[in-house]
C-alpha cells in the first residue's frame, strides 16, 4: 500500500514535478541511474508487484531498445566509429550511448507518470488547482463526471441503434458513417436535454449565489510539514549542486561527465541528495510499513476503534487513506457488479 499518496496533494505534486523536470533536463549518468532505480522501485509500490513487473518489462524495455537502435540512425557524431551504414554515414559509439541515455530518460519519465496517475487522483488535482480559482475546481469535477457518463450513454445509444438494425460495426463505409452520425446526433440531444435537469439541480442547491467556497478534504498537518522540509532540503541542495556544475555531462562528440572521475565532495553530495529526493516516497512507504508492523505487534491486546467512529474521524480530521482500505472483499467483488448493473 502506498503511504505517500496519503500525504497532502501539494507534497505529492511537488515531488512529481521535481523528479520529472529533473529527469527531463539533466541527463548525467549517475542522476539518470538513480532516477530510473527510484522510479521503478516506486512503481512497485503504486502499481503493485505484478502490474509493475508487467509494465516495466513488456512496455519499457521495448522503448529502450527502440531508442538505442534509432538514435545511431539519425545522429553520427562521435569519435569512436564502429562501422558504416550503407549510405556511408558512420555508426558511432557515442550515438549509441546517447540513444541509450535518451531511452532511459523516456522510460523514467513514463514510469513517473504512471505512478503520478495513481497518486494524484482527480480530487487531489481538483483541490490543488481549484484553490487558485474555485470555479475551476467545480468545472474540473464536472468534466470528470461527464466524460465517463457520456461514454456510457454512447454505448447505450449505440446498443439501442444496433437493436433496430443500425450497427456501426457492419455495413459499408457510408452506412457506417451515417449510423455514426445518427448516434452522435442522438447523443448530443440527449446530453443537452438532460443537462437542463442538472442545471436545475444545481440551481436548486444554491449554485449562483455569491461567496462560493471550495471544500477540501485535505489538511496540511505536521507530517506533511516534516516531509516538505526534508524533501525541500534535498531538492534544494541538489539544485545548488547542479548550478555549480555537478551535473555537467557531454555526450557529443565524446562522453565526459563531471563528478565521476574524480569524485568530488560537491558531486557526491549532489548525487546523494538527488537520490534521497527521488526515493522519498519509497522511504516514506517503507517507514510506514515498518511502523504498521510495530503497531500491530504491540496492539494485540489493544482496543481498536469501531468502523463508524473511525470513518467519522477520518471525515472530520481529513486523514484519508486510500479507497482500498474502506471496502471489504465482498464489496470489492461486487464493485464489478455495480459497474455492470446500473
Amino acid at each position: 500500500m502506498d503511504q505517500f499518496s496519503t500525504y497532502h496533494p501539494a507534497i505529492n505534486f511537488f515531488y512529481f514535478a521535481g523528479v520529472i523536470l529533473m529527469a527531463m533536463f539533466f541527463n548525467h549518468p549517475v542522476m539518470m541511474a538513480e532516477a530510473l532505480f527510484a522510479a521503478v522501485l516506486y512503481s512497485f509500490f503504486t502499481l503493485g508487484t505484478e502490474k509493475a513487473l508487467r509494465f516495466n518489462l513488456l512496455a519499457m524495455v521495448p522503448i529502450l531498445l527502440i531508442a538505442v537502435l534509432f538514435n545511431p540512425m539519425f545522429n553520427h557524431y562521435g569519435v569512436h566509429i564502429l562501422g558504416y551504414f550503407p549510405n556511408g554515414n558512420p555508426i558511432t559509439l557515442e550515438s549509441i550511448i546517447y540513444g541509450f541515455v535518451m531511452g532511459v530518460m523516456l522510460v523514467t519519465v513514463i514510469i513517473w507518470f504512471s505512478s503520478y496517475n495513481k497518486v494524484m487522483t482527480s480530487d487531489k488535482f481538483v483541490y490543488l488547482f481549484g484553490r487558485m480559482i474555485p470555479a475551476l475546481s467545480l468545472i474540473l469535477s464536472m468534466v470528470l463526471r461527464f466524460v465517463p457518463r457520456f461514454k456510457k450513454q454512447l454505448e447505450v445509444i449505440s446498443n439501442g441503434q444496433k437493436c433496430i438494425g443500425r450497427d456501426v460495426s457492419s455495413g459499408n463505409l457510408i452506412e457506417r458513417a451515417k449510423h455514426g452520425v445518427r448516434i452522435i446526433s442522438i447523443m448530443i440531444t440527449w446530453a443537452l436535454e438532460n443537462a437542463i435537469e442538472t442545471a436545475d439541480s444545481m440551481r436548486a442547491r444554491g449554485y449562483g449565489l455569491k461567496g462560493r467556497t471550495a471544500f477540501s478534504i485535505f489538511r496540511f498537518d505536521n507530517r506533511d510539514a516534516i516531509a516538505a522540509i526534508l524533501m525541500g532540503l534535498a531538492f534544494g541542495i541538489t539544485c545548488i549542486g547542479l548550478a555549480l556544475g555537478a551535473g555537467a555531462v557531454q555526450y557529443n562528440p565524446y562522453f565526459k561527465a563531471a563528478g565521476i572521475n574524480p569524485v568530488t565532495p560537491l558531486s557526491l553530495l549532489t548525487f546523494i541528495c538527488y537520490f534521497l529526493f527521488c526515493l522519498s516516497p519509497v522511504i516514506i512507504d517503507i517507514m510506514g510499513d515498518y511502523r504498521w508492523r510495530r503497531l500491530r505487534n504491540s496492539q494485540e491486546t489493544g482496543i481498536s476503534m469501531t468502523g463508524a467512529d473511525e470513518s467519522l474521524r477520518n471525515a472530520m480530521f481529513g486523514t484519508p487513506t486510500s479507497d482500498e482500505n474502506n471496502i471489504t472483499d465482498a464489496e470489492r467483488m461486487s464493485k464489478g457488479k455495480i459497474k455492470l448493473w446500473t
Binding site: D123, M142, R145, E197, T198, S201, M202, Y207, R212, T213
Partner: peptide
C-alpha cells in the same frame, strides 16, 4: 443520474454547502 454534478461522493455532498459559502 441527472442531478449529480461532481464526480466524487464527497464533493457532491459538499456541493450545496459550497454554494452557500460555508467555511471548510
Amino acid at each position: 443520474d441527472n442531478q449529480i454534478v461532481t464526480d466524487k461522493v464527497w464533493h457532491e455532498l459538499a456541493f450545496g454547502l459550497e454554494s452557500l459559502g460555508f467555511d471548510n
